[in-house]
Design a protein around this nucleic acid. Structure first.
Lengths: 144, 144
DNA sequence: TATTGTTATACTCTATAACTATA
DNA sequence: TATAGTTATAGAGTATAACAATA
């Protein structure tokens, strides 16, 4: 199998380390804007979609009951709202409020700036290589 | 500056996505072994060093008071122990117990296996490229 | 006085189990 | 009966502020 190449262990350790660094950056950005990392992930998702509770649970990797509490707190803070589904009265969708969208956009901007500092000293060709490799890895995760 | 290259946004989004995926993998491995992601990071650090509380706080990006609680719970579970410092009675070091080292080694093994699945389909040359790029990024983070 | 670490407090995050409402 | 979501509960993680012990 492919996993016996000599530098495998080194690649793995660096990948974990970079992931921790990126998570740390994002946690700090979230904290500076008075939200948790989980709320940041939630807001990032809601910029593009208006999912129902079960989908949020699946995508964030959390239990449905956890999502209920998460959304409760976000509603209390005026960031999101619950929206009913006319086709199935059991279903609840979640959508950004105007204030929520404003914060989500701000967070996205700050995230991009922070991560740009990580990739900032790479040259154009290196960045292209990195993009290719990241896409390969994400592909593998999507189609295991 | 270098941060205006055309694919920058794409690189940033992929890097965040990969980081979330890796964090998700590690969280699942931690949960399967009945520890939190923070405990997993703690145990990973302690495999190589025997740091004092303030260093743990710094490296994990947490408040000292948070570390006190974290270590309390790890001590209760028999994973680590507090060790005094003869040169300065205020200082407390943290070290793995035998059981803690066993768990830390197991977690390390499982982490390596999981991350290997992410990098598994990359060829040898691609893996070498990835290692180079990850090192460049970690270097930049260390010497900003 | 300054530093190291702990404690008290309050809030968020998280899962399990039991529940309600709808299909 | 099965599914979507909520609530009750309990424990972990987290920071702020106040504190004790040591330097």
């Amino acid at each position: 199998m492919a996993s016996t190449a000599p530098h495998d262990g080194a690649v793995i350790e660096r990948l974990i380390e970079v992931s921790f660094r990126v998570s740390g950056l994002l946690t700090r950005i979230a904290a500076a804007n008075d939200v948790s990392l989980t709320q940041l992930r939630l807001l990032a998702m809601l910029r593009e979609t208006r999912p129902r509770m079960a989908v949020l649970a699946d995508r964030l990797g959390l239990d449905r009951s956890t999502i209920s509490g998460l959304i409760d707190r976000a509603v209390t803070r005026g960031l999101v709202e619950r929206v009913g589904n006319p086709d199935d009265a059991r279903v609840v969708h979640v959508a950004l409020t105007d204030a929520g969208r404003q914060l989500a956009d701000l967070l996205h901007h700050e995230m991009a700036g922070a991560v740009a500092e990580i990739t900032g000293r790479l040259g154009g060709a290196e960045r292209a290589d990195l993009l290719y490799l990241l896409d390969r890895m994400l592909d593998d995760l999507a189609h295991p």
